[in-house]
Design a protein around this nucleic acid. Structure first.
Length: 200
DNA sequence: TTCGGGATCGTCT
DNA sequence: GACGATCCCGAAC
């Protein structure tokens, strides 16, 4: 039986965003207990966004708006936004307060609450439950309205540290063609040879 | 297996 | 008023 009671330490979130993404979030377990149901999955794919220089980042160039305000908070909380009129996307805020760095979680390997995920997603196929940023929010019941800014050290939404090391590869990010010289930066990281990745 | 369109609304111009 | 850090489904190959 897996134990999801541990929490990633606060200081780790407030360090370098790439270090956080590569060495701490990839392979860790994203957990939610929403509506009384525990759902959790191992993070298999993610993308890094850097507010100070990265044209693909919502908060570039360090632009604080009502939408991006949570990204400027101290690392360790959730930045959840809404796109395409129907999907939510979950990010982990990184770095010290006043900086706008985030890690978009793109894909999970389901490990707990799979039946609840199937109900929420109206889908039986395990490999289609959490392989995409919009899908995993639906599976874990994460929404901008309810969870933007949520502390990731609590009991609603949290991250349990990885229990072993995983290899990872670096590739360009998805869906940011407008980002000019930043669109080809290999800031998407995923665990190779894992079925639960949205795009190879 | 790949491609293209539609759904749908918060956010910024 | 335009445009997405997407997803799903159906059509064509």
């Amino acid at each position: 039986m897996e134990d999801f009671s541990r929490r990633l330490a606060k200081e780790i979130y407030q360090g370098d965003v790439f270090e956080l993404a590569q060495n701490h979030l990839l392979g860790a377990c994203l957990c939610s207990r929403i509506g009384g149901k525990l759902t959790a999955g191992i993070i298999t794919e993610l993308e890094v966004y850097v507010g100070s220089c990265d044209k693909a980042c919502h908060a570039w160039p360090n632009k604080l708006t009502p939408r991006t305000a949570t990204m400027f908070r101290a690392g360790g909380c959730a930045y959840v936004f809404f796109v395409y009129g129907m999907y939510n996307q979950f990010n982990v805020v990184a770095g010290p307060e006043g900086t706008a760095n985030a890690v978009l979680i793109r894909s999970l390997e389901p490990v707990a609450g799979i039946e609840e995920m199937q109900r929420r997603r109206k889908c039986e196929n395990i490999t289609n439950l959490t392989t995409g940023p919009g899908k995993l929010c639906q599976a874990l019941a994460i929404t901008r309205r309810e969870h933007d800014g949520t502390d990731l050290g609590g009991n609603l939404l949290w991250i349990s540290p990885k229990e072993k090391e995983y290899p990872f590869v670096a590739r360009p990010r998805i869906g940011i063609d407008y980002a000019e010289e930043y669109k080809d930066k290999p800031w998407r990281f995923y665990i190779p040879d894992n079925r639960f990745v949205s795009k190879k």
